[in-house]
Amino acid sequence: MPGGGPEMDDYMETLKDEEDALWENVECNRHMLSRYINPAKLTPYLRQCKVIDEQDEDEVLNAPMLPSKINRAGRLLDILHTKGQRGYVVFLESLEFYYPELYKLVTGKEPTRRFSTIVVEEGHEGLTHFLMNEVIKLQQQMKAKDLQRCELLARLRQLEDEKKQMTLTRVELLTFQERYYKMKEERDSYNDELVKVKDDNYNLAMRYAQLSEEKNMAVMRSRDLQLEIDQLKHRLNKMEEECKLERNQSLKLKNDIENRPKKEQVLELERENEMLKTKNQELQSIIQAGKRSLPDSDKAILDILEHDRKEALEDRQELVNRIYNLQEEARQAEELRDKYLEEKEDLELKCSTLGKDCEMYKHRMNTVMLQLEEVERERDQAFHSRDEAQTQYSQCLIEKDKYRKQIRELEEKNDEMRIEMVRREACIVNLESKLRRLSKDSNNLDQSLPRNLPVTIISQDFGDASPRTNGQEADDSSTSEESPEDSKYFLPYHPPQRRMNLKGIQLQRAKS
């Protein structure tokens, strides 16, 4: 015994090295194993092979420090690593049964499904019991997946119906949107047309105001020219009257000059006056001389005659003075006559000038009245044309509004008919989907599995289990394997941990 101590140590070291070499393959693929292994699927088989106990299973599945599946799978690998070579062998058998691809990844061999460990530990009855539990578990999982698949199909059909409904609603909204954009385009076109009409109206108003201003300026210029013409006519008439007055005065002077006595007659009258003065002096001298030589009687007679002569001279002087006064009065009367005649001529000139001015103003008033009548006639014609244009424009607008209203009513009726057609199509689609759903539900009910399987069917299934373990590994792997896509769409199922009653199965096998 003492001599065998070193050999035992060498043997233990060799086993430990082999164990480390075995687990080295697992550690190399630890990331892939932790990512894809579900500990809840492996722990029943590991407990059946007595590699882990209930406490280890509870620690792996329910520990609060292991929230994710990767953490739980890593903890399970750590626990199996502590179990040595047996933990490695049982772990590979569980991978061979549940995850053939991972088994091939770790060992590089094809899975054979021999279950040597569980046969050694529990015997064939334990293997049968384990396989029966796994089959029931798989059936329950398949039923749950079928239910989930039916629910998802129903949800899918519902979503398809909602999608069709949303599509129809979208078509309806597109119809309304198209109608909205069309009405918006019509409104924009009408606004552009309105702005264009306003611009045209403004341009016409500006043109009309400009023409009116030009016409008023032309009328004012015409009036100024007419006033200048009238003033020139007035000056012409005044000059004609002055010329006529000057002509009359010149004719009067000419007549006075023609009626003036001649120079010879004046000289002859002056000679006669001198001769008479000479004779008068001679007679006076004779009379003076006679007075001195005459007697007293003759002197008395001469005195009487002288007195008579003096009286006659006085009378004559009075007559001469009277004649002079009369001549002066006649001259003054002639001057007054000439003055009055001049005033008369001036008044006649003024009267004729005023008459011509009156005629001029009368003509001017007639011209202004004619212009006013023409302006009123043009204004009435413009008003009439404007009223006709406004009436025609309003009539066109009324007809346009009428046609637009008819078009809008027809478009609304068309839209309502399209919407009604879309709604009826939606109703038809809904009815078809309901009919299809009812038909599929009836087919699913016919094809669904019963909840409680008979014992004979279970025994028959387990009677055929042994050949399947040898020759149909691919079928078992397809039913027991969970793909990543299934984990996305289906909830994980945790079967209840219970042991099955095998009395009925044993009785059935005894009868057979």
Rank of each mutant, 00 (worst) to 15 (best):
G4T: 11
G5S: 14
G5W: 12
G5T: 12
E7K: 10
E7Q: 12
E7V: 14
M8P: 11
M8C: 12
M8G: 13
D9A: 13
D10Y: 10
D10A: 10
D10C: 11
Y11K: 09
Y11D: 09
Y11V: 12
M12H: 09
M12A: 13
M12G: 10
E13G: 13
T14F: 10
T14W: 11
T14A: 13
L15T: 10
L15Y: 14
L15Q: 12
K16Q: 11
D17T: 13
D17R: 11
D17M: 09
D17N: 12
D17G: 12
E18W: 11
E19I: 12
E19S: 11
D20N: 12
D20W: 09
D20G: 11
D20I: 11
D20K: 09
D20Q: 13
A21M: 09
A21N: 13
L22E: 10
L22V: 08
L22D: 12
L22C: 10
W23S: 07
W23A: 03
W23L: 06
E24Y: 15
E24A: 13
N25I: 09
N25W: 10
N25G: 09
N25C: 10
V26P: 08
V26T: 07
E27D: 06
N29H: 11
R30M: 01
R30G: 02
H31A: 13
H31M: 12
M32T: 09
L33K: 02
L33W: 04
S34L: 06
R35P: 01
R35A: 04
R35G: 02
Y36C: 14
I37Y: 01
N38Q: 10
N38H: 09
N38W: 06
P39R: 01
P39W: 01
K41F: 06
K41G: 04
K41Q: 02
K41Y: 02
K41E: 09
L42W: 00
L42C: 08
T43F: 03
P44C: 03
P44F: 01
P44Y: 00
Y45A: 01
Y45L: 09
Y45C: 04
L46W: 00
L46S: 01
R47C: 04
Q48V: 04
K50M: 14
K50F: 11
K50C: 07
I52M: 13
I52G: 04
I52T: 01
D53N: 03
E54H: 06
E54S: 05
Q55F: 11
Q55I: 08
Q55G: 07
D56C: 04
D56P: 03
D56Q: 00
E57K: 01
D58R: 01
D58V: 05
D58P: 00
E59V: 02
V60M: 04
V60Y: 07
N62F: 14
A63Y: 10
A63T: 05
P64Y: 08
M65T: 12
M65R: 04
L66Q: 00
L66Y: 15
L66P: 00
L66E: 00
P67A: 09
P67E: 00
S68K: 00
K69T: 03
K69Q: 02
I70H: 04
I70M: 13
I70F: 09
N71V: 10
N71D: 00
N71G: 02
R72H: 00
A73P: 00
A73M: 06
R75Y: 02
R75F: 03
R75D: 02
R75S: 02
R75V: 02
R75N: 01
L76E: 03
L76D: 02
L76A: 04
L76H: 02
L77T: 02
D78E: 03
D78Q: 05
D78H: 02
D78T: 03
I79K: 02
I79N: 02
I79E: 01
I79G: 02
L80H: 04
L80I: 06
L80R: 01
L80Y: 04
L80V: 08
L80F: 01
L80C: 05
H81Y: 05
H81K: 08
H81G: 07
T82V: 09
T82A: 12
K83P: 02
K83E: 03
K83Y: 05
G84W: 05
G84S: 08
Q85N: 14
Q85R: 08
Q85A: 08
Q85T: 13
Q85V: 07
R86H: 12
R86Y: 01
R86Q: 14
G87T: 05
Y88T: 08
Y88M: 12
V89C: 12
V89K: 07
V89G: 09
V89E: 14
F91W: 03
F91M: 07
F91I: 05
F91N: 05
F91R: 05
F91S: 03
L92W: 04
E93V: 06
E93Q: 14
S94F: 02
L95H: 14
L95P: 06
L95R: 02
E96W: 01
E96A: 08
E96P: 03
Y98N: 15
Y98C: 15
E101I: 07
Y103S: 08
K104R: 10
K104N: 05
K104D: 06
L105R: 11
V106A: 06
V106Q: 14
T107P: 03
T107S: 06
T107N: 03
T107F: 00
T107I: 06
G108S: 02
E110F: 08
P111C: 06
P111K: 05
P111R: 07
P111G: 12
P111H: 07
T112A: 14
T112L: 14
R114I: 13
R114M: 06
F115I: 15
S116Q: 13
S116R: 07
T117G: 14
I118G: 06
V119D: 14
V119E: 15
E121I: 05
E121D: 15
E121G: 13
E121Q: 07
G123L: 15
G123A: 15
H124C: 15
H124K: 09
H124Y: 06
E125F: 15
E125D: 14
E125K: 05
E125M: 13
G126H: 15
L127G: 09
L127M: 15
L127C: 07
L127R: 08
T128M: 14
T128E: 14
H129E: 07
H129M: 11
H129C: 15
F130V: 15
L131F: 10
L131Y: 01
L131P: 03
N133Q: 15
N133S: 08
V135K: 05
I136G: 11
I136N: 06
I136E: 10
K137D: 04
K137Y: 14
L138S: 09
L138G: 15
L138P: 05
Q139K: 13
Q140R: 14
Q141K: 11
Q141W: 10
Q141R: 09
Q141I: 14
M142W: 12
M142I: 15
M142R: 09
M142C: 14
K143I: 10
K143E: 07
K143F: 08
K143Y: 10
A144G: 11
A144D: 10
K145W: 10
D146A: 09
D146I: 09
D146M: 14
